[in-house]
Design a protein around this nucleic acid. Structure first.
Lengths: 143, 143
DNA sequence: TTTAATGCAAACAATTTGCAGTAGA
DNA sequence: TCTACTGCAAATTGTTTGCATTAAA
């Protein structure tokens, strides 16, 4: 039987994740965790995040060439994202604001474990400016 | 004024894209293009694909650590995807099968240019087998 | 004790970029 | 002609992996 172990580093990663709604990436999470446990490696952060994603506790926003952003599902609440094409800022969109998406048109027998909905577009700041805002983890909802 | 030029390599990339509904990645597209124009570089393929994505002609499916898959929007028709977590197979889901998604709950002033909807889950083949199918470009809708 | 989880560093792979040369307009 | 586009190769960068060690159960 496989056995999942409760470790200090795993707890730290989860804690950082829960405390942030800024859609952090692995490197940022790593830095935060190191403030508590200086010896934790980036590899461990990645492995822990993978496990959390598999468990459905954490959701990812993946963009080619850019670091994956991780999003803790607070209270198991579903929500979706609006991603600015220009500056990379990510905004939360409450799932309640959207209708339940029926799983029609799927291949016969496909078992859905999660739905990912992303609105691509231009955020208010970038829409109004010539020079787009700088993307970053710290900066969020920059409007 | 910027000027977009019609080049042989760009035409070849578009042609390959239009001919395939298998959600190919850049390397596969490159190989196909080279069958016609052996000198075309992978860099050019990437640059061309980027332009097509910007123009909204092509849609991407991005997964961390894996190659981005490119999907030509035939007839400008919107459609979404079902991605198998186990083998990576990608299935098309007709947009008609889904309700129009209202853009409520978005940040004030966010201009939506595209919606990306992905059903994550397990495909019929992987659900029924212990050992998952091999993911690949050639293999599509393996049920 | 048993073996999952870790830290470290090296390996990998996808994508981007600088630059000199090519070819559309 | 003019300059967008190309090919090439090197550089980046996010992510994964092998292995000896540590620590949770």
């Amino acid at each position: 039987m496989t056995m999942v172990r409760q470790t200090r580093q795993r707890a730290a990663v989860i804690e950082v994740l829960q405390a942030s709604r800024a859609h952090p990436d692995a490197a940022w999470i790593h830095a935060q965790v190191r403030a508590q446990l200086p010896s934790v490696s980036l590899g461990t952060v990645y492995r822990t995040l993978d496990a959390l994603v598999r468990d459905g506790v954490v959701v990812t926003i993946e963009r080619a060439g850019q670091a994956t952003r991780y999003d803790y599902r607070h209270d198991g609440q579903d929500h979706h994202h609006a991603v600015c094409r220009s500056c990379g800022a990510i905004f939360d969109v409450a799932a309640e604001a959207l209708p339940v998406i029926p799983t029609l048109g799927l291949p016969e027998g496909f078992q859905v474990t999660g739905v990912r909905l992303e609105f691509m577009g231009v955020c208010p700041t970038c829409a109004g400016t010539q020079n787009p805002a700088q993307a970053g983890v710290a900066q969020r909802n920059h409007h």
